[in-house]
């Protein structure tokens, strides 16, 4: 139920209070997603989508952090 997966915003479909929606691609599968909670997200950005609603925008810098940490582990 808390399954939420990252998808890439392809195009904004509608604007409006509670009604900002986009076409989001999940490895090629497109779905309409509500973007009310990520108002700053734009085409090209990745959002985390749960039951048709984006709850978060992926932070690309933070996404790299684990691999930096792993490199540090490798040096031990």
């Amino acid at each position: 139920m808390c399954l939420a997966i990252p998808g890439r915003i392809e195009a904004i479909l509608t604007e409006g209070e509670l009604a900002r929606t986009a076409s989001v691609s999940f490895a090629g599968v497109r779905k309409t997603v509500n973007l009310t909670f990520v108002p700053q997200a734009q085409p090209g950005d990745y959002v985390i989508v749960h039951v048709g609603v984006a709850i978060s925008q992926v932070d690309p810098q933070q996404a790299q952090q684990i691999f930096e940490d792993l490199k540090a582990i490798g040096d031990l």
Binding site: C2, A4, L18, H50, G52, V53, I55
Partner: peptide, 20 residues
Amino acid sequence: AVGFETTGPATALALAQARQ
């Protein structure tokens, strides 16, 4: 409508739209 805090916003959004 079942869920934890992850799902609360989606249920809230549906209700807010229904009211609108």
